[in-house]
Simulated scan of single mutants.
Amino acid sequence: MLYWALIFLIVALVAGLLGFGGIASASAGIAQILFFVFLVLFLVAVVLRIMRGRAP
């Protein structure tokens, strides 16, 4: 998921440099959503790992 967020960020940067504002804005929005979804899933996994404790 983080990989796709980086891809959309790169697409947004390239589109912004070339003057395609609409595509850049949409790609940046998608990248932001994917990053926050990744962040939430990562934090949930960390919390579950902490709650689970060490494996015997």
Rank of each mutant, 00 (worst) to 15 (best):
L9A: 12
L9N: 11
I23Q: 09
L2G: 15
F38W: 15
R49K: 15
A31W: 02
P56H: 00
L9I: 05
A31H: 01
F35W: 09
A15F: 03
F20W: 06
P56K: 04
L18D: 06
G53T: 07
L43G: 01
L13R: 02
V47I: 11
L39E: 04
L9T: 11
L43F: 05
F8C: 02
A26T: 09
G29K: 00
G19L: 04
V37G: 09
A45R: 13
V46S: 05
V37Q: 12
F42Q: 06
L2A: 13
Y3I: 08
G22H: 02
A55D: 09
A28N: 01
L34E: 05
L6I: 07
I10K: 08
L6V: 08
S27N: 13
A26D: 05
I33G: 14
I50M: 13
L17V: 10
G21E: 14
V44D: 09
Y3K: 14
V37P: 03
G53F: 06
L43H: 03
G53P: 11
P56Q: 03
F38E: 14
L18S: 09
M51E: 14
F42A: 12
L9E: 13
L13D: 00
L34F: 02
V37M: 04
W4M: 14
R54V: 01
F36P: 05
V46N: 06
P56Y: 01
G16M: 00
G21M: 07
L17E: 07
A24F: 02
F42D: 11
L34C: 02
R52H: 11
L18I: 10
L39I: 03
L41S: 10
A45E: 10
A15G: 03
A24H: 02
G16E: 00
L17P: 03
G21F: 11
I10G: 09
A31V: 00
I50Y: 08
G22Q: 00
I10P: 00
I7Q: 14
A31D: 02
A55R: 15
A24C: 02
G19P: 06
A28I: 04
G19V: 02
G19A: 04
